[in-house]
C-alpha cells in the first residue's frame, strides 16, 4: 500500500475526520499520558491528516494512549483524537509478528490481585 492508501485506511478505520481539527491543542492539553508520549494527540491528528503515518507506527506513543476518551470528550471540533490513535495502533499491531504484548510479559507483571479485566483489555489493545 502506498502512503495515501495507508492514510485513507487509517482515517476510514478511525471513523473520524482529522480535517475538522482547528489546531487548538486542547486534546494534548487534556491528555493524562502527555509526558509519556513523544507524539501527542494533536500531532497524531495532524500527521494522519498529512499522511505521515510511518513515524507514528514506529512511535512508542501508540502504546501509551489510555483510551480514556478525555480528548474525545473535550475536543471543541468533535475530532476524536483517541480514535485516530487507536486506528494507527491497529495498523501497527496487525502486521505479522507485531504483537506488543506476550503472555510471558503478563506473567511477569501479574500478582494475586490483578483483575482478569486488565489482562483481556491489554491483549485487546496490544495484540491482534
Amino acid at each position: 500500500m502506498n502512503r495515501d492508501n495507508v492514510r485513507d485506511e487509517v482515517i476510514r478505520r478511525s471513523g473520524t475526520d482529522p480535517r475538522k481539527c482547528m489546531k487548538c491543542g486542547k486534546c494534548s492539553a487534556t491528555c493524562p499520558s502527555y509526558d509519556e508520549m513523544e507524539g501527542h494527540p494533536h500531532e497524531f491528528v495532524y500527521m494522519v491528516e498529512n499522511g505521515d503515518i510511518e513515524p507514528l507506527l514506529a512511535s512508542e506513543s501508540i502504546y501509551r494512549c489510555l483510551t480514556c476518551m478525555a480528548c474525545v470528550e473535550r475536543c471543541p471540533r468533535g475530532v476524536e483524537p483517541a480514535k485516530i490513535v487507536e486506528s494507527v495502533r491497529l495498523e501497527a499491531i496487525r502486521k505479522k509478528g507485531a504483537n506488543r504484548l506476550t503472555p510471558e510479559a503478563v506473567a511477569a507483571v501479574a500478582d494475586e490481585e490483578l483483575p482478569q479485566q486488565a489482562v483481556v483489555t491489554a491483549f485487546r489493545k496490544y495484540a491482534k
Partner: peptide, 27 residues
C-alpha cells in the same frame, strides 16, 4: 501561550491549570 487549556483542577487555594504550549511542544 499558543494552545488551549484542557482542565482546571481546584486544589486547596490554587487552581491547577493543565494546558498545551504548542510552540514549545509541552504540556
Amino acid at each position: 501561550v499558543k494552545g488551549m487549556v484542557g482542565k482546571i483542577s481546584p486544589q486547596g487555594e490554587v487552581l491547577k491549570v493543565q494546558a498545551s504550549d504548542l510552540i514549545a511542544g509541552r504540556q
